[in-house]
Nucleic acid binder design. Sequence first.
DNA 1: CCAACCCATACATTTTCGGTATGCCAATGG
DNA 2: CCATTGGCATACCGAAAATGTATGGGTTGG
Lengths: 295, 295
Amino acid sequence: MDLRRLRYFVAVAEARSIGKAAERLRMAQPPLSVQIRKLEAEIGAPLFRRGTRGMDLTEAGQALLARASEALALAADGAEAARAVAAGKRGRLSVGYMFVLANAMLPRLIPELRRSIPGVDLDFAELSASTREARLLDRSVTVALCMPAINHPEIQVARIGTQPFMLVVPSRSPLARLSKVPMARLQGRPLIALPPPERDPASSAVSALLRRHQVVMPIAGRVETVHSAMSLVLAGEGFAILPACAQLGAPRGIVFRPLRDASDSIDIAVCWRRDSQSPLIKTFLKCAEKAVARL
Amino acid sequence: MDLRRLRYFVAVAEARSIGKAAERLRMAQPPLSVQIRKLEAEIGAPLFRRGTRGMDLTEAGQALLARASEALALAADGAEAARAVAAGKRGRLSVGYMFVLANAMLPRLIPELRRSIPGVDLDFAELSASTREARLLDRSVTVALCMPAINHPEIQVARIGTQPFMLVVPSRSPLARLSKVPMARLQGRPLIALPPPERDPASSAVSALLRRHQVVMPIAGRVETVHSAMSLVLAGEGFAILPACAQLGAPRGIVFRPLRDASDSIDIAVCWRRDSQSPLIKTFLKCAEKAVARL
DNA sequence: CCAACCCATACATTTTCGGTATGCCAATGG
DNA sequence: CCATTGGCATACCGAAAATGTATGGGTTGG
């Protein structure tokens, strides 16, 4: 059963004549006649009544016509859909992001994406650093927003911005009075830390910052989320060092202060599989850059 | 866009491997590889990711797969449906019948048909003699139940039974007393007639009956339907001569009496277009014969 | 480093398709 | 009644496409 035969069949059924259909199909009449007869042989029953003034569908032909035209439409639509997906005009874009970036970026990023790729289903998931990496690798996520970038041979990275590290203190703390906090003032103070470097590379950036300024802060608590870290700071358990954008999610009673002599910052990056051929990635990248520009 | 290509594509997508799919398709691996690449060229985008351990659908491929398998199923179903219709296992049987036969035949005929051809849609229409003929000719009716048979070169006829003519009288009429009415007693009495022979050949059968017995009955009224004829008889306007089976629809106050010396009868026939290739006709014929046998 | 696995390419063979020429049949018109 | 016309079917040939066999090349795993 060949799709071309069905196309010919539908044409003849609509034209009610082999000659007319052949004209519309830009072919000679005899081969079309042959194809129709082959189709009838394949079905095992006549599909047309041959009259002296053209062809007329039999009931078997009518039964076939309904399905055949639908099948033709489906096949054409399938090809079109595949092309649209490949061109990035339709499909699904699955984005893994991290909590700290949510408040800062998503309100700008999502509307931007909807304008740029209206036919694409968006799917946002807040994921931990290790999960983002795993799901990029198994392709269940198309792109990830990371801070800092993922370092993996299969994963490609585009840096779209940076965030300075800031000290997070309770507003009633004496440190809150300073507009800029000298690094030396942190010496020996308790630190509320995020998951260790194996699970969250942001932690190693913080460690590096402290090491570079030869400041030692004992770890007073490890938490999974930025939100928990701020809660512990608010409770007076210690201080945290977080990217500036975390401010947007900070509760009342918490203030962010720049570190005077440390200009250390952390990269915001878009990450995706090096072999991903999704054309949506470059669009996503543009949108993410716009969203970061306003930070 | 060829159905074979789509079939191959679906096979490869399901087997997640060209080699495995080729095995299932009973063909060599290289031509299948070529076909898949041709399909990708036709779509203009890769449909599979080639891994070292097989093939994996891209998103464009997934978009195509859904439609392609549906299109394949539709094409197969179309062929199957056409075969089923040609074999008389599915389709539509449109029956034109006449009012006088409705009470006598349909209660037996319809259940019989439903048992014999359960997949077929039945469509019964009560039609006048001339309409039955016209709609047989334009194929909007597949078969017709007629009394008497239609006489037309394009129409084939099978006689399935006969009905004796009977005299229809009001039960209070003196003629109702007789168990058999001699033809001579009808001389000069008013006749309630059905439409003239051009529109209803049953009328010419009645005329022939009277002529053969040299009886003259003035026409006291022409009506369109048997029902109207009986109403006029009940009203005392005259007498009617109808096939025996009309009794089943007779109102109270009307009786049917055999004609003593007239053994005249009228054929019940099944009629269809000589060139109709519907396999349902022979089944219909069998069912109609059964239904008539019990009259 | 070799063997196994899997896909891609090359080439020869066969099938199928489409075009041209022509025949057949029925309806139409003088 | 014969000629013409319109429409489909058949025959044959050249071209395109599909399939099979042989082989290359890359990656994985022992």
